[in-house]
Simulated assay, not measured.
Amino acid sequence: MFSREVKLAQLAVKRASLLTKRISDEIAARTVGGISKSDDSPVTVGDFAAQSIIINSIKKAFPNDEVVGEEDSAMLKKDPKLAEKVLEEIKWVQEQDKANNGSLSLLNSVDEVCDAIDGGSSEGGRQGRIWALDPIDGTKGFLRGDQFAVCLALIVDGVVKVGVIGCPNLPFDLQNKSKGKGGLFTAAEGVGSYYQNLFEEILPLESSKRITMNNSLSFDTCRVCEGVEKGHSSHGLQGLIKEKLQIKSKSANLDSQAKYCALSRGDAEIYLRLPKDVNYREKIWDHAAGNILIKESGGIVSDIYGNQLDFGNGRELNSQGIIAASKNLHSDIITAVKSIIGDRGQDLEKYI
Rank of each mutant, 00 (worst) to 15 (best):
I284R: 02
L154H: 09
Q308M: 11
V93A: 04
K181R: 15
A61L: 10
V32R: 05
Y351P: 13
Q175W: 11
D39A: 01
P63F: 08
Y280W: 07
N279P: 04
A289P: 11
I322L: 13
P168R: 08
D72L: 08
I202F: 08
V113I: 12
F185A: 11
D79G: 01
I352R: 12
A325Q: 02
R126F: 11
N215Q: 08
R265F: 03
W92K: 10
V278S: 15
D267Q: 15
S256K: 04
R126C: 03
K209H: 06
S256M: 11
A149N: 09
V113T: 10
S339F: 14
A74E: 06
G183L: 12
I58A: 02
D111T: 09
G290S: 06
A188L: 08
D79N: 15
Y305N: 05
A153D: 02
D97Q: 06
D332C: 13
R22E: 14
F185E: 06
G145M: 06
S264M: 08
E206G: 08
G69L: 02
G69K: 01
L309G: 05
W131A: 00
V67N: 06
K37I: 14
S264T: 11
G298P: 01
Y351M: 09
T335H: 05
Y260E: 12
L104A: 00
K78R: 13
G299R: 12
T139A: 13
S36A: 15
A153V: 06
K7G: 07
K14D: 05
T139K: 03
A252T: 10
A258H: 01
K179Q: 13
S36Y: 15
N169M: 14
Q246H: 14
E112T: 08
E243S: 15
N169Q: 13
A149Q: 12
L154Q: 01
P275I: 00
Y194E: 13
S326M: 08
L237I: 04
K181A: 14
P135T: 04
S178Y: 12
P135N: 02
R281I: 07
A99Y: 14
D310R: 01
L274G: 09
D97E: 04
I334Q: 02
L254C: 05
G102L: 05
L245V: 09
Y351C: 07
K181L: 09
L293G: 14
S105P: 05
G192Q: 01
R265H: 02
C114A: 15
I202C: 01
Q196F: 04
S36E: 15
A16T: 04
S57E: 08
S319V: 10
